[in-house]
């Protein structure tokens, strides 16, 4: 009797509509995401150069070329350096801001908005903003240093290859700290009040309270923010493209920029696809463990 009811239900109008809508999204996502990724891998195994597509499969030639390409290796190193500095700094700053805001400050919403504002702006806007600020002759940073008598600190900033990447990282931290703060704040706020009160009754206060009670309980938020920042650090394109274009020389060039230049400016489509595939694998190396642990927890 029960079984009959279920089988009848499959053919209800609702069911058909639901499956139809589901099918559309599966097809669209499948084509535009998964088939495109697969196609990219196929292109990376070909010898496609110029605007005419060529699917003449030559195997792993492009990948072997990558290993001997100083530009690719520089970009990869820059990418790694970016992740190593940008991600922890942003996390610490975000946590610090979240803890500050958690002190029951007055006008908390105002501060929260101020800290989050940079993140809501387009990367193109903030890219231009920082480019003007870093401008060695007219930029606000050097001008301020001059006015305050700190002329010895004046620098070429993004035009000095020795520090350009760090300038990029500083501006990225500025943009993302608010985002990390929001995630941490949500994590802190979701800790039951009773835990904190219990700890306070036991005599924990200030630093100890955060160290032993709050921070251990926001592991999930930390992990989420960590993964999002890592993935961004790998595939940041627009911000750096506007700010430095990868220069001077290759000082701030990262993989997505190299990929773009090889593909669209130099029309080395197969080579660009190979870089895209490497980038994809790197992102997967970060995302897959995250997804795995999330599912396991559930």
């Amino acid at each position: 009797m029960k079984r009959k009811r279920i089988s009848r239900k499959i053919f209800t109008k609702d069911r058909i509509i639901i499956q139809f809508i589901f099918l559309i999204s599966v097809l669209l996502v499948g084509y535009f995401v998964y088939i495109s990724i697969g196609w990219n891998v196929v292109v990376s195994l070909s010898d496609w150069e110029g605007l005419v597509p060529s699917y003449n499969i030559v195997g792993f030639d492009q990948y072997i070329n990558l290993l001997g390409d100083p530009v690719f290796l520089t970009s990869l190193m820059n990418n790694i350096l970016l992740m190593l500095i940008f991600v922890p700094c942003t996390l610490f700053l975000g946590l610090f801001l979240a803890i500050l805001l958690d002190q029951k400050v007055r006008k908390e919403a105002v501060f929260r908005t101020i800290y989050l504002l940079p993140f809501t702006l387009s990367f193109v806007v903030t890219g231009f903003l920082w480019r003007w600020m870093y401008n060695p002759s007219m930029g606000v940073i050097n001008t301020l240093l001059e006015i305050t008598g700190l002329e010895f600190l004046k620098s070429g900033w993004i035009t000095d290859p020795n520090i350009a990447l760090f300038c990029v990282i500083v501006s990225l931290i500025w943009q993302f700290a608010g985002y990390a703060m929001l995630i941490f704040l949500a994590g802190i706020r979701s800790i039951p009040e009773s835990h904190i009160m219990a700890a306070e009754v036991d005599g924990a206060s200030g630093f100890q309270l955060y160290k032993r009670v709050i921070i251990p309980q926001i592991k999930a938020s930390t992990f989420t923010a960590f993964v999002v920042l890592m993935v961004f650090a790998l595939k940041a394109f627009d911000f750096i493209y506007i700010l430095t274009g990868g220069g001077p020389g290759y000082a701030t060039e990262i993989l997505p920029l190299t990929m773009y230049k090889e593909t669209f400016a130099m029309t080395h489509f197969a080579y660009g696809s190979a870089i895209a595939t490497v980038l994809f694998l790197l992102v997967m190396a970060i995302v897959v463990p995250y997804l795995y642990s999330t599912y396991r927890r559930k």
């Binding site: 000095d160 001077p248 020389g249 230049k261 130099m266 029309t267």
Partner: peptide, 18 residues
């Protein structure tokens, strides 16, 4: 060729700083 032009730009960008 265009690829050379793009590369030239990056190489010179390095050269004028080092």
């Amino acid at each position: 060729p265009e690829a050379f032009k793009v590369k030239l730009s990056a190489i010179i960008s390095s050269f004028v700083t080092n």
